[in-house]
Amino acid sequence: MYHKSAGYRTFSVFNYLLLTLICVSCILPLIHILAVSFSASSPANANLVGLWPIGFNWDAYAKTLNNDNFHNAMLVGVERTLLGTAVGMALMILAGYALSKDNGMFRSRSVYTWYFLFTMLFSGGIVPAYMLIRNLDLMNTIWALVLPGAVNVFNMVLLMNFFRAVPKELEEASLIDGAGQFRTLWSIYLPISMPALATISLFTMVTHWNSWFDGLLYITDYRKYPLSTFLQTIIVQQDFNKINPDINELKNISQRTVKSAQIFIGTLPILIVYPFLQRFFVKGIILGAVKE
């Protein structure tokens, strides 16, 4: 067997070692940020904290979590992410499936493809986008956060490519059985494409969860901000060039710990979701094996 060969064994040892090293490089900065978030503000602000907190305390987290708007922001964030992912995935799966058909069978697909691709490159900028949302009367609604980014062309093209990899025989068999396109998509393509769906869902979720600027623009009531926008607004930038800071103001500036804490508060939910989605990668293999 291959894994018994001496060469492969050497490679394996080397491989594990390399991967471990890479992981360490990825995790060290995070440990640093974590250490800062648990430190007292003075050493943190003077940049004295390394990988271990100085003057351990929870204040940075308490400041964010005790905020009245935190719970609401969390709910809005989750709502936006779920709704956004559901709507986005529905649109992208349908379109991605249709686009995965051969040119021979579905000649118009090229037109559609370029119609979508074009929007990936060209954008009119922030002013017309803002006017559109305002004129559609979507200001201050969750739809202003969900709809504009619903069709992510990059993700849709990826999805299309995954659908293309599905063996054609399966589709033909299904169509011969008298199933329509919708039925084929639902009962053949979706179950077999779980890894792809998990991947694209993850991408979509991450995008929605992390976006904050659209919240600032389109949500006029700051009590309705999603979590990412809310987190951005806990810390208000200070521009000292012109300001004569007030003594009360100055006391609030110790922000480095809060900023660091926010990274974890904001990232944690996505981190929890990820290992859960990883299961689908394994499931996909099994299903694929059975079907073929």
């Binding site: 529905a90 379109a95 499936y97 058909k101 119609y115 929007t119 002013v127 017309p128 559609l136 069709v151």
Partner: peptide, 25 residues
Amino acid sequence: TWPLHLMLLPAAIATFIFAYVPMSG
């Protein structure tokens, strides 16, 4: 092919509104 066109319709419309209309900018 009409089911395929139908499948593309929602995404095409959303793209039209939220990508092509603002392209006027």
